[in-house]
C-alpha cells in the first residue's frame, strides 16, 4: 500500500517542483521602488509565493533583458508609461482584463488610456506618478525665483545647479521654458532647444543620476536640481526639511510608470493578482512611500492609507491643481529619440 500511495505523491511533488506554473515564484522586472520589502512581503504572505525582483534602469535596458529571455522567464513588467506602446509593439505585454482594474478610482489624468491601451485593448495600468520640475533648498535660493525657469539661466545661480541626467524630462522642461508643449517637440523644433539647453548646462555644476543629485542637494554641493521633484526630495525630507520642490509658471513634466503582465507568463493569474495588489490602496500607499523613491499613487482612493505626514510631503491635497499644470513626457519616435539623445550627449560633452 505504502509504495502505491507514495509513488503518485512523489510524482506529483516532482511535477510541482519541475513545472514553472506550480513553482509559486513570481518573476518581476521592476524599478527599484518595488524592491522595498514593506511593499512585497504582504503580497508574498497573502498568496504564499516568493516574488523574485530584478531591477533595471532605462526602457532600452529593460527591453533588452526581455529580448534575451525565454518566454515564461518573466511574469510582471514595470515600465515607463510612455513606453508601454513600445513594449506592446515588441510583443512583451499581455492583454489585461480592464474590468478587474480599479481605474475608475484613479485621478482622471492617470488612467492614460492612450498609453496603456493599444487598439482598444488594455496592456498595462498606471501605478505611480510624479513630476520632473525643480527641486531646491529653500534656505539657499529665493523660492520666488523657482517659480520662473528663466531665473535658472539669469546668472544668479551659476554653478549652483544640478541637472538630472535623463534627457526626456529635462528636454521637456527646456521646451516648456521656450513655450513649446512637450507633445510639440519634433525634429524641427528640437533645434530651437539647443541654445537654451547649452545655456542651462553652462550655468550648472553637474549632470547626475538620482543618488548623486540627492547627495549634491543634501550636502549643499548644489542648491537646485533641474528635473527633480517630489521623488528626489521626499525621501530626504525627514533629515532635510529645507528641501522643497515646485512647478514653475511655465509648467512641469509628469512622469508615470505602468505595470503589466508579461506575454508568455506561465502564471498569468498570479501575475494579474500582483498587478491588482499594486494598484489597490494598500499597495499604492506602500509603493508611493517606497524606501527607494517616493511618488504619487495613481489611485486617488489611496489618501486614507497614507499618514498625515506622508500626505503633506506628497502635497496630496494639491494634486488636482498640479496635474492641470503638468504635461506628459515627450513621446519621440525612433528618429526623434535618436536626435534628442544626440543633443543630450553633445550637451554632456560641452
Amino acid at each position: 500500500m505504502a509504495l502505491k500511495a507514495i509513488l503518485p505523491m512523489t510524482a506529483a511533488t516532482l511535477a510541482a517542483m519541475s513545472c514553472p506554473g506550480l513553482a509559486q515564484e513570481l518573476n518581476a522586472l521592476v524599478w527599484c521602488d518595488h524592491t522595498d520589502p514593506a511593499l512585497i512581503e504582504p503580497f508574498e504572505e497573502k498568496f504564499g509565493v516568493k516574488v523574485n525582483l530584478k531591477e533595471y534602469e532605462g526602457t532600452a535596458a529593460g527591453l533588452a533583458i526581455l529580448d534575451q529571455s525565454q518566454p515564461g522567464d518573466w511574469d510582471v513588467l514595470v515600465i515607463d508609461a510612455v513606453d508601454v506602446g513600445r513594449a506592446v509593439e515588441a510583443g512583451y505585454l499581455a492583454e489585461l482584463p480592464a474590468d478587474q482594474l480599479p481605474t475608475q478610482n484613479f485621478f482622471p489624468e492617470l488612467v492614460m488610456a492612450e498609453n496603456n491601451m493599444v487598439d482598444g485593448k488594455t496592456y498595462a495600468v498606471t501605478e505611480k506618478f510624479g513630476y520632473n520640475t525643480i527641486s531646491y533648498d529653500k534656505t539657499k535660493v529665493d523660492p520666488a525665483d523657482m517659480e520662473d525657469m528663466a531665473s535658472l539661466t539669469s546668472g544668479k545661480y551659476d554653478g549652483r545647479i544640478g541637472i538630472y541626467d535623463y534627457y526626456l524630462p529635462v528636454l521637456g522642461l527646456v521646451a516648456l521654458g521656450q513655450g513649446i508643449n512637450t507633445a510639440d517637440i519634433t525634429p524641427d523644433t528640437l533645434g530651437s532647444l539647443k541654445d537654451p539647453l547649452m545655456a542651462l548646462r553652462a550655468a550648472s555644476k553637474q549632470v547626475s543620476d538620482v543618488v548623486s543629485a540627492q547627495t549634491a542637494l543634501a550636502t549643499g554641493e548644489v542648491d537646485i536640481v533641474v528635473g527633480g521633484g517630489e521623488w528626489l526630495t521626499a525621501v530626504l525630507a525627514a533629515d532635510n526639511p529645507n528641501l522643497d520642490w515646485t512647478i514653475p509658471k511655465q509648467g512641469g513634466l509628469r512622469w508615470a510608470q505602468s505595470i503589466g503582465v508579461v506575454a508568455g507568463s506561465t502564471q498569468p493569474d498570479l501575475a494579474l493578482e500582483f498587478v491588482k495588489y499594486i494598484v489597490s490602496p494598500e499597495g499604492q500607499a506602500k509603493l508611493a512611500t517606497s524606501s527607494c523613491y517616493w511618488g504619487m499613487p495613481a489611485n486617488a482612493k489611496t489618501g486614507d492609507a497614507l499618514s498625515m505626514e506622508q500626505r503633506a510631503i506628497l502635497r496630496w491635497q494639491e494634486q488636482p491643481d498640479f496635474l492641470k499644470r503638468a504635461q506628459l513626457y515627450p513621446i519621440p519616435d525612433a528618429a526623434l529619440d535618436t536626435a534628442m539623445q544626440d543633443l543630450w550627449t553633445e550637451m554632456l560633452n560641452q
Binding site: 532605462g58 535596458a61 544640478g162 549632470v207 548623486s212 535618436t338 539623445q341 554632456l348
Partner: peptide, 25 residues
Amino acid sequence: PQILGGNAELTLPQLIMLQLGRSGN
C-alpha cells in the same frame, strides 16, 4: 567619472553605456 566627475565630461565607457542603456544602439 559618472559619480565623482558629475558628468562634467563624457568618457568613452560612459558613451558606451549611454548607447546601451538609453539608446539601445
